[in-house]
């Protein structure tokens, strides 16, 4: 499975819905999407990982890169993820302390307001 990306806005937040696998091959596509969003002036991002089957450290690097970009514009980046196999990677790498991780997009949007 390749990577799918869909974006929409909800309560002035940009929701990036990601599906498929984020790895060394597909991560550049996600990076490009996040860079485009920030360049277009979207500084408050919610990245929905509920449709993601696989995530590796390359993907984590892209998420951290996105966080750095939005923070340089006083923005925010929150994640939506309930899959244990993905949450485990965030825990192992200590990134649960870096990203706000929510169960639903609505919860992520509400928390950011």
């Amino acid at each position: 499975m390749d990577l799918s990306l869909e974006t929409r806005t909800q309560n002035n937040r940009t929701i990036v819905e990601v599906g498929g696998e984020i790895d060394v091959y597909t991560a550049p596509k996600l990076r490009e999407c996040l860079v485009d969003q920030v360049n277009a002036g979207s500084y408050h991002l919610v990245i929905d990982l509920e449709g993601v089957d696989f995530l590796d450290s390359t993907g984590l690097g892209v998420l951290v890169g996105g966080l750095k970009r939005v923070r340089s514009h006083e923005g925010s980046l929150a994640l939506v993820c309930t899959h244990e196999r993905l949450l485990k990677i965030f825990r192992i790498t200590g990134l649960t302390k870096v990203f706000p991780i929510h169960d639903t997009v609505d919860a992520a949007v509400a928390d950011a307001e």
Partner: peptide, 10 residues
């Protein structure tokens, strides 16, 4: 200098 660990650390 990165915030996240490399693949070997994972």
């Amino acid at each position: 200098g990165e915030l996240f660990p490399d693949g070997l650390a994972v």
